[in-house]
Design a protein around this nucleic acid. Structure first.
Lengths: 248, 248
DNA sequence: TTCGATGCGTGCGCCACCATACAGACGGCC
DNA sequence: GGCCGTCTGTATGGTGGCGCACGCATCGAA
């Protein structure tokens, strides 16, 4: 039942660029390692680099008054960290925390902005990606409000699975509790339930996805909704093909 | 104690444009009425017009599986409805519901996009506004997860007050319950508490803000956090002044 | 004035989750 | 093997909010 996704060798946003644009972008990137638990951004502080993850993934976390934190997004090789820079504001709205080790392409903010201004294809890609991020953020907000811990955990595992490119990954319960904004005990119960349903197995932080389809069934439907956002904006009439940016 | 904000005569995004750009924009707008409870967008459907509210305000609502809905944003004369169009995707991620009657400048999507492509100043304004919207969306997500109904209600009343430009407005408890994603009874209790603290008064839907400062004190701090987002990106180093859009 | 519609308050049982605490299980390390 | 730190399971009491139901007050229309 478990599928073993291929380990990615590149970032999908970068890969989708036409050859020439891609080469120009890559010329300004360096490949760096993403180290588990590393903090790349702090909310309210400047963004020194942007990242295009190749392997590994990064949590976007919103800290609020009272010391509480909530994960509001997840960036893997389908996306880019620092996307809000395309809006011309060099302040991160989130903490960014490496949650799955790997590596990424990294670029300084200034060379990213310079490249962006010249590269219409890149603008178009990143606009779409930001749109998807916004939509998923709203979805997550509502899901977090209304759905049970078990369903939310299932969704989170699926999203993580998509970005981990492996059926096994390492998270302690206390870490997942932090991400979902619940107590550890809540995770214990939910994870236990998922294990008894043979959807996952875990042991001292080593989590294995046993049955993706089953997980999708117990997840709240917000996972499927996320998927549909992708599909929806790929229909030709949804995505406006004329350049809306760029001063003609 | 109650302050009576001046009734606005214009939209602030539009007003902030240089004279020439503003005139060009206005030439493509028509002024229309915003009717209470009118639905301007449906999530997942195309955006026919954009709106620059002058008076009145609009809720952005995310519907999710199971028939539940959550307000994730609020647009008044400080903003624009349809902002995600600047990302080149003509699909609304939210329902948009008129919550305070008034009027707005309206523009068709196509003439908006045409205008946007030619108007660098407008791009810059709207980028900043989208950045703020994203940041507030994340704030709302975390606030909704962690804070009590009374604090959230106080915050919501403050945000509404900012956009209503009046100390009195009309909302039934059941309506506010819908917005905050709680039962009506939860609003009854919270509103009662606020009334006993002499922060608001209400009677059959007529709500009056009696003590703004007091409301800010019982609100969760997320309101202040929202305000600081505005301040933060207005510092010169936070906002990148070179055009990051537009092919040089 | 009567009546229905609307808005508001309360009561009760229930449940998911919180806060805290403790104990067992496992693994790495010396 | 023995120790300790980490990870996981459980237990207990408490609470905020849910679901439902009922009753009352107010308002406007007939």
């Amino acid at each position: 039942m478990p599928s073993t996704p291929a380990i990615p060798t590149t970032n999908r946003l970068v890969a989708a660029l036409p050859h020439k644009e891609r080469e120009k972008l890559l010329a300004n990137c360096e490949q760096i390692e993403l180290i588990f638990t590393e903090v790349l951004y702090r909310a309210g502080e400047k963004i020194p680099h942007v990242y295009f993850p190749i392997e590994g993934f990064i949590s976007l976390i919103r800290p609020i008054e009272g010391g509480e934190n909530l994960e509001v997004g997840l960036t893997g090789n389908e996306g880019m960290l620092g996307i809000t820079l395309i809006l011309g504001v060099n302040v991160s709205p989130f903490d960014a925390l490496v949650q799955g080790a790997g590596f990424a392409l990294r670029m300084t903010t200034s060379s990213f902005l310079h490249e962006l201004a010249q590269n219409i294809e890149l603008q178009r890609e990143l606009h779409r990606y930001l749109y998807i991020s916004i939509s998923q953020l709203a979805q997550t907000a509502a899901c977090t409000r209304f759905h049970m811990v078990e369903a939310r955990l299932a969704r989170w595992l699926l999203m993580t699975h998509d970005r981990a490119h492996s059926d096994t990954f390492h998270f302690t319960q206390i870490f997942m509790a932090y991400m979902l904004g619940v107590r550890r005990v809540g995770i214990t119960k939910a994870a236990n339930s998922l294990q008894q349903q043979k959807l996952i197995s875990y042991h001292r932080g080593e989590i294995t996805i046993l049955n993706r389809t089953g997980l999708e069934a117990v997840s709240c439907g917000c996972y499927q909704a996320d998927q549909e956002i992708y599909k929806r904006i790929n229909i030709s009439e949804g995505h406006l093909h004329h350049a809306v940016q760029g001063g003609v």
